[in-house]
Nucleic acid binder design. Structure first.
Lengths: 208, 208
DNA sequence: AAAGTTATTGACTTCAAGGTCAATATAGCA
DNA sequence: TGCTATATTGACCTTGAAGTCAATAACTTT
């Protein structure tokens, strides 16, 4: 075992834009799989197959990378939801589709990340900023959906903001609990639908 | 500055039970103030004024201490809620009081701890067990409250378990969001009340 | 009062985190 | 073809986490 070389071959030189994107993509994959806490200099470097130092070269601040990673993942998901709801003919249909999508079991990784973010942002200012931003964007998204329904005469409420905010909170909480409570994961969302139907003056069952 | 002694005086010898409780109490205080992640050998030792080694002597496993800390805090709170609701004359009153208490702003530290726990339990088996236990106990508590109301003819539902589970999820989520969204913290809970009134066949406004 | 049990401590180890700094190798340009 | 800017690396530092182990000091018991 004289020359057993466990050495990694030198990473090929790449244009900064490409390498940078490669590193950020790796950070996102790690965050999706093992959570934002797992996004470290070492883990990102190892995944890409470069030295820690190179990661520092591109991302001189880990807190910032974590925040950016969260931001991108969350913004991507929001864009997806926008696209899906925009495609629906009525606001009621859109809200039904949105609720169904948000309560879907396959979204567990994102749910876990949001739970993580509430904790981590206590100690990471950049992340806290990103969280606020994303919460605002989500809030605005749901408000505009409600307003769309009001303009069309489908929904009726006098406080779209409050309804939107609590809607998002309820969904987040139920999903978080389902993360631990495997058994109950199937039946998530009945109360949310009833609550929204009631709150927006919809006929019972409209959202199912 | 030859003899500037920053040395801590030797801690007085105490009976194991007392010292043990002292350490666990310190862990709880730290958890309440700075979160469960802040409960470390060092922080507990420093707070009590003893060496790290002594903490190890009493708590040979940090994961276990963190789990026990969470368990005690959460069980204390549950006991408090039990006492408060038991004191109410009707189940409707009890539910109103419970909801109000759970949505109270002063409960933010506990909310933060629960959010933390969902994240940490991914990497701490003992903690995961404690979380499951406590969720079960809460679930059972709310279910029995609902059943009390059904026996008295106040509530009507065909799935107390599902209603209880989602009730807790909603409250948790709304509180978590309020942790970040200072502005909206005042108006938490309208939807939850409406949802529960609707779900349990109560007259609108019964829970306000 | 002496002995023995054990609460308490200090020195040390291991591991993983973020980060610095100077050296090296390589791709693209002159 | 050779130069040069810079992408990439290796060696090193600091901090804070958990944990081990033998030594010391303080009660309790005989």
């Amino acid at each position: 075992m004289t020359a057993s070389s466990p050495v990694r071959p030198r990473a090929g030189r790449k244009p900064p834009a490409e390498r940078g994107e490669e590193l950020r993509a790796a950070a996102r994959e790690i965050a999706r799989r093992d959570g934002l806490v797992a996004v470290t200099l070492r883990s990102v470097a190892e995944r890409v197959g470069v030295t820690r130092t190179l990661v520092v070269h591109y991302e001189p601040n880990m807190e910032a990378l974590v925040a950016a990673t969260f931001r991108t993942i969350a913004e991507d998901e929001l864009a997806e939801m926008r696209a899906e709801t925009d495609a629906e003919a009525t606001a009621t249909d859109a809200l039904r589709v949105l609720t169904r999508a948000l309560l879907d079991t396959g979204r567990d990784e994102v749910t876990a990340m949001w739970a993580e973010v509430f904790v981590l942002s206590r100690r990471n200012d950049a992340l806290q900023g990103a969280v606020r931003d994303l919460m605002d964007q989500w809030q605005e998204f749901v408000v505009s959906l409600i307003e769309r329904g009001m303009r069309a005469g489908e929904f009726h409420t006098d406080d779209a903001h409050s309804v939107a905010w609590q809607y998002l909170g309820m969904i987040d909480g139920i999903n978080s609990h389902a993360l631990v409570n495997y058994g109950a994961a199937m039946e998530r969302g009945r109360l949310v639908c009833h609550a929204m139907e009631h709150e927006l003056g919809l006929a019972p069952g409209s959202l199912r």
